[in-house]
Design a protein around this nucleic acid. Structure first.
Lengths: 360, 360
DNA sequence: CGAATCGATCGAATCGATTCGAGAACGACT
DNA sequence: AGTCGTTCTCGAATCGATTCGATCGATTCG
């Protein structure tokens, strides 16, 4: 509290308290409603009056209508929450997420909406329901969000989910994760690979590493990861592998060491992100295993990674920015009272130089 | 507007309108004030009453107090704005920024505050003043923000600036940019280098590339970049170079080609970020110039970059996460009515294997 | 047994603006 | 001159909750 705080009321009208629209109106000699019109521009106000109001505002050092009050009255705050499953640092490590966010921010920014970064409940951050949001975007979130989604619906807050388990009253922006992965798997199959392993994204909220087991898959809450596993199994029904703790080159390296160090090392690896794929390649390099001659590696995302040279990943290029954009425009439509259709995006399989025929 | 919207009033009390605290209180047979107490937990409320209120809330499908109304009444929205100079994609491309943001989010999250991403005014995004924010963090922003800062002060919104031109009533979280760069320059000087060039971060809001000229430096609005240039000139008064359009390996590559292709190529380069430094190294590799034998390169930030191997950059390690944390805790204190002291961080000069003696 | 105390609940004011319908002033048209 | 139509301004209601002080019983203390 500042020095003059206690005098808020005692000091009369001209105390240190921040001025409000009423004070400005009073000084200008007009009613509050007119002053409001003068600021918002809606409704007819004579130039003379507007000038008077603006002058009064300047004199009182009034910075314009309080956004908090506007939010209440209008029922809109201009803020859209974005819930990402990881900590910021984790989420932003993958260029894919950043690209997606960029598309989202771009679309929302155009509509005058701001992006509020939220983490999943329980992370200690804002409770996901106490923030004044107009809408929410769920990004690759676990299915455990059901409860929160219900809470949001009670508030009448529309929800858009990018790559998530279908939920009632949640607009889906999807990617052909399963199909795409199956395509990559088929590619490996055609090249003659039979010993193929997966390096997956985290399956649990706590991101533990470890072998990919049936139990873990069944218990998993990570939609995207599970879909991609399904896609791989459409081609290699018994495929196994390891689970990484995140999407990074480092994690890929760890996973790669694990896979390549075992007795019957695979001849091909399906990594669930380009960063992981690059890490696997690094692990191969460490062991003197040549890519793609002795080991084929496919990634996912199609992001351009610094330091991948001379490799050009065989990967699934997904329209990340477009995905974000689609989510953004869906939100804008939702807020306009329209009912946009769900969007589904497809990935393009791009063959690089990290896959080749299986060694006979 | 939804189907039942027009019936909001006509339908009587039980229409499709979203329930509010008053409705819940009425159904529970208590006053609104008691219902409020029951939800907030402040003040004494008997268990029986609380149960009644909660039951009524459930029956009405009431999701708890409206954050917008709370914001107004409490004068707090729980939202902190973060203004970054670039587009999201630009800003998040540099791990440095992400690390900083992570520290910030961590500290703010603990205090129950959310992070609202904003871009500089004029970018079309939220007007930086119409969002209901409790405080604002300026990150490496241009000096052109003066006007906005004034607007924020009018609203009584505290402002913290990370590495920015000192401004009145703005709490500074600083880094020894000048000093640190001078240290690196001295290192090169001691190694015998005389033909040294700079690769700087953008100097103007529009991020044009080009030669580093006196006019540009003088007209520059980028604080960090300018400070670092000053540091370099403390050792090499006549140092020139090129300006990059952002902080990325790609930009460093472009800048490096420019520098190394010219007639009297430098024997050492001071890059203003690690990403730029790595790009310069790439440019050298392209031309068959050996690092560090024929070209020394120093960076700034000390972030671990994938793909830098086998090089370990000679660079200035700055405490990025800590910087963000400091800004976060400063904000928390500011909001608590305290007056935290400005913070200044120092970078540590780390010698890697990208600098060596000048060729005689 | 009267008084002080404590716990639970309620009333009313307040946060700061927006917006709708009504009213006033004024020029134009028949 | 009277009526109609503009244009500008105002009053009052409203958005949804929080919070201070007052009230009212019931319990406990002297």
């Amino acid at each position: 509290m500042e020095a003059g705080a206690s005098a808020t009321r005692a000091g009369g009208k001209n105390s240190a308290a921040r001025p409000n629209l009423a004070a400005v109106a009073a000084l200008a000699g007009v009613s509050a409603s007119t002053a409001s019109l003068a600021f918002s521009g809606a409704g007819p106000v004579s130039d003379a009056t507007r000038a008077k109001v603006l002058a009064a505002a300047e004199q009182l050092n009034y910075g314009g209508p309080d956004p908090r009050a506007q939010s209440l009255r209008r029922g809109r705050s201009g803020i859209v929450g974005v819930v990402m499953e990881d900590r910021l640092r984790e989420a932003f490590r993958d260029p894919m997420n950043v690209a997606m966010l960029d598309g989202l921010a771009d679309e929302l920014g155009t509509a005058g909406l701001g992006l509020l970064l939220l983490t999943e409940p329980g992370s200690g951050g804002p409770e996901l329901s106490l923030a004044p949001m107009d809408a929410v975007v769920l990004v690759g979130c676990s299915t455990q969000l059901d409860r929160s989604v219900v809470a949001l619906h009670q508030r009448g807050i529309p929800v858009v989910a990018i790559e998530a388990e279908p939920m009632v009253d949640v607009l889906a922006v999807d990617l052909d994760n399963r199909d795409a992965t199956a395509r990559a798997a088929r590619h490996l199959h055609e090249l003659g690979h039979t010993r193929v392993a997966l390096v997956t994204l985290p399956l649990e909220p706590t991101h533990p590493r470890g072998a990919l087991t049936e139990e873990r898959i069944a218990a998993s809450t990570a939609f995207t990861s599970r879909e991609r596993i399904r896609g791989a199994r459409d081609v290699f029904p018994a495929i196994g592998g390891v689970v990484a703790a995140g999407s990074s080159v480092e994690e890929g390296l760890i996973a790669g060491r694990e896979l390549l160090g075992s007795g019957d090392a695979p001849t091909a690896v399906i990594a669930q992100s380009d960063l992981l794929a690059l890490g696997v390649i690094r692990a191969a390099q460490e062991r003197g295993i040549r890519v793609p001659e002795e080991l084929s590696v496919v990634g996912f995302d199609g992001v351009r990674i610094e330091g991948a040279a001379p490799y050009e990943l065989t990967t699934l290029v997904q329209p990340a920015v477009e995905k974000g954009r689609a989510a953004g425009s869906a939100i804008v439509e939702l807020l306009a009272g329209q009912t946009p259709a769900p969007r589904a995006f497809t990935s393009e399989f791009r063959v690089g130089n990290t896959t080749g025929p299986a060694i006979s």
